[in-house]
Design a protein around this nucleic acid. Structure first.
Lengths: 243, 243
DNA sequence: GAGTGGTCTAGACCACTTT
DNA sequence: AAGTGGTCTAGACCACTCA
């Protein structure tokens, strides 16, 4: 087979070469959205590999949204709808350190009790549920960097009641003490309220980027957190991955 | 083999059951960050499957950031650093339609020429590069929904020069006419400038959520776009996936 | 050197979908 | 009924890394 020639000791795995080849054909405009892609059998023959290897290449392309697969009818180039983007939301202390700045943490307020109805909804909790309400400020080289307001559901994480959070931030503590969790994130822009503006040392009404996070553990809400960043400086950036 | 007993016609693939089992152990607190996970050989024996199947389960957990794998030293529960979140940035027309609203598109301005230095940098272009500058407004039920400002690199996509974009939005046209592309997204919050505020029918200085997108084709920038949404209404939401 | 993960094979059977 | 993808096996060899 001339196709299987030029072994050239393939440092890159075969399934990657298949993926790269198909991706290149698409990027070159050779294959357009909706166009059919050779089946697993054909690809296996073309690349001189087993069907499993061709299958893996096509499966990964499918998971990445590059192609669409349907039984019987085969594999086609996906027609891109929206964009699915991998967003990294780093830990604030690591983020500040990565910028080469001195990280500072301060607990502004610690308050225990039954939260208001709006927060109760976020916690998916009943009226008798108690929550730990924490207000924190994170600084980079002394400059306010992130304002954090957080509620921890004490029904789900009762151990949190005994922690004072004066030294360790709630995020770091939770990551160390609560196993693993599902998460939901909501991104929005808002005008800073007077208190937030003062804490972040920005003008009232300045735009802030807000990240709301809820995490679950076995179906119950662990915590609801609001992270507020000065909009003028803060950016969330997605890497450009697919080469 | 007693291990292979109880066929029970497993509707869910074995590799999924292995993944689910390990995830459950982690979420139950049975396995904590840093704890070792049985190797592929051991898992294969435990679940009565081949090593390939166990390998796939562990590989996918690793790709999802749940575990960390290293040769020789084995597989361990990952210690969560930041959070990697899958963000869906939908097409504005589909997004509006999905809300059950009437989608409206208007081209406000179409301008051809050499862009200013700031935009030239974004396009990674030289001083002689010409770009098509488009300004568009997207509406939902007649209400301004998104303001779009876009530059298309005519070195990369010369065909765009002949399109008038009066009827079809630049995003839709590009998706149909330019193969596939890498993308970079930047999210930020800002105060609306007077012109944007007027177009979006919001007060000046109101917070807006801005999404900047650049796409590449074979190493060259196709387009740089800025999407601006009224911050009061617009939310970007990540699904809570891992069950 | 030994043990782990990473890849690959050449088969196999099944599930789904379209004809 | 036939053709496609989805899963799985029981081996194999290699690469990396730790002891």
């Amino acid at each position: 087979m001339s196709a299987a020639a030029a072994k050239t000791r393939p440092r890159t795995p075969v399934f990657r070469r298949i993926k790269g080849d198909i991706l290149a054909r698409i990027q070159a405009g050779d294959l357009r959205p909706g166009d059919p892609i050779p089946g697993e059998e054909a690809l296996a023959h073309e690349f001189g590999c087993s069907r499993m290897t061709a299958h893996r290449a096509l499966r990964e392309l499918s998971e990445e949204g590059v192609v669409e697969r349907r039984r019987r009818s085969g594999t086609r180039v996906a027609r891109p709808g929206g964009r699915n983007v991998l967003l990294e939301i780093p830990r604030v202390d690591q983020e500040v350190a990565a910028m080469g700045c001195q990280y500072g943490y301060a607990l502004l307020d610690r308050d225990l009790g039954r939260p208001a109805a709006a927060v109760r909804d976020k916690l998916e909790a009943g009226t008798r549920t108690r929550a730990l309400h924490l207000t924190c400020l994170h600084r980079a080289n002394g400059v306010p960097y992130q304002f954090e307001e957080r509620w921890i559901n004490l029904d789900t994480v009762p151990e949190a009641e005994k922690v004072d959070f004066a030294e360790i931030g709630p995020n770091a503590w939770l990551l160390d003490h609560v196993p693993w969790s599902d998460g939901e994130h909501v991104l929005s822009a808002a005008n800073a309220d007077p208190r937030t503006a003062e804490l972040l040392d920005i003008a009232p009404q300045d735009a802030v980027l807000m990240i709301e996070r809820r995490t679950w553990r076995q179906g119950r809400v662990i915590t609801y957190a609001r992270f507020t960043h000065p909009g003028r400086f803060y950016r969330l950036r997605t890497p450009l991955d697919r080469g």
